[in-house]
């Protein structure tokens, strides 16, 4: 039992961090959010060259041959950087395509792993109203999807089926407008009997990976929020002393770090249970989601408060985190849904 990263994992995480600090610093994230989405293109391509999208794909399929643990480290860093872009959909598509056979799939796989195809993630419950799978065609009415407007592909999880849709296909409607979270803009997607190739993968398995990785992203962001608050509270002075010396502020920061640490431990444990296919992996993932949502939402709010009037401005980065926290809450099952899953388990006990 060891919940600390190995020296190699530490090195991987450090190199991802330095990549993101130079290629996707907050100034660039801000530019992307403020209307220059093309700013993401170079870092995205570079991430593809470095193999970030296929970390857990076996090397015989062109991946890096690591596991979901290294992907977790990647997503923690993405969260820390508040990186825009459809990382989750793209990484999950690489997973889904890993076992696909045939030339067309191999080409797709190469495109996804290289970052040439960006993939937005769509998660629909089986039998959800307005969704229908018939033969190789898929219909979907008006769903809110993150990062759909700039994706080449849509990865559709429907019940346990996994499908890929090209956004350029006839019958695909994607409309975007003003969005709440500009670092992860949503669009409204409708599919009208569009060609949707079925992949030999399990949507349930992908949802699990997606939950683990998005929790890791939230953990990274929550920890970053602690750093931002501590840094500001150490230099901002009022009443002749740094505000971090006031207990009200100091204790708020302490609570932020408790939340971040709880979320991190839960996420690491859940991801390891997932890798090892432990019997309780779904429970552990629900635990991680509840704790990570708590940490992200609450730390983002506390960070605004710690920054005072500055925290309320557009110029301060605090609001981007507030908004992203809500994006996190909304994907792959709200906290409420995960709490209900835990409650069902308690009822059964």
């Amino acid at each position: 039992m060891d919940l600390t990263p190995t020296a190699e994992q530490e090195a991987i995480q450090a190199s991802i961090r330095s990549f993101l600090e130079s290629e996707l610093p907050m100034s660039r994230v801000r530019a992307i959010a403020e209307g220059a989405p093309q700013e993401l293109e170079a870092p995205w391509r570079r991430a593809g060259e470095l193999g970030f999208f296929g970390l857990a794909v076996p090397s015989q399929h062109g991946g890096t041959g690591y596991s979901v643990i290294e992907e977790m480290l990647l997503f923690e860093e993405l969260g820390r950087a508040l990186a825009p872009g459809p990382w989750l959909g793209t990484v999950l598509a690489a997973h889904a395509l890993a076992k696909a056979k045939g030339d067309r799939e191999a080409a797709r796989r190469a495109d996804v792993q290289a970052g040439r195809s960006r993939v937005a993630l769509i998660d629909v419950e089986e039998g959800a109203s307005g969704s229908e799978a018939k033969d190789d065609r898929f219909t979907l009415r008006d769903l809110v999807v993150a990062d759909a407007a700039r994706a080449e592909l849509l990865l559709v999880l429907h019940g346990d089926a996994v499908r890929l849709v090209e956004t350029s296909a006839a019958g695909v409607g994607i409309s975007s407008g003003q969005v709440f979270d500009a670092t992860r803009p949503v669009a409204r997607v409708s599919l009208e009997a569009v060609p949707a190739e079925r992949l030999p993968a399990s949507a349930h398995a992908l949802r699990r990976i997606g939950t683990a990785l998005s929790c890791a992203e939230a953990v990274g962001a929550s920890a970053r929020l602690v750093e931002l608050s501590v840094a500001y509270a150490s230099v901002r002075e009022q009443f002749g002393r740094p505000i971090g010396s006031f207990q009200a502020v100091k204790h708020r920061c302490a609570d932020m770090s408790v939340r971040a640490e709880a979320a991190r431990a839960a996420t690491i444990y859940a991801t390891l249970s997932l890798r090892d296919e432990s019997d309780d992996r779904d429970f552990q993932l629900s635990v991680a989601k509840v704790l990570a949502a708590d940490a992200f939402v609450q730390n983002a709010a506390d960070n605004v408060q710690n920054h005072g009037g500055m925290g309320y401005t557009w110029e301060c980065d605090a609001h981007f985190f507030v908004k992203r926290a809500r994006s996190f809450e909304a994907i792959l099952g709200s906290s409420r849904r995960h709490l209900d899953a835990i409650a069902a388990r308690l009822r059964g006990a």
């Binding site: 709880a262 429970f283 635990v287 509840v290």
Partner: peptide, 16 residues
């Protein structure tokens, strides 16, 4: 359920 989740996280924190 939330308390159950938190106590589970406590175990992971202790392990870590």
């Amino acid at each position: 359920a939330r308390l159950r989740a938190e106590v589970e996280a406590l175990r992971s924190m202790t392990y870590r």
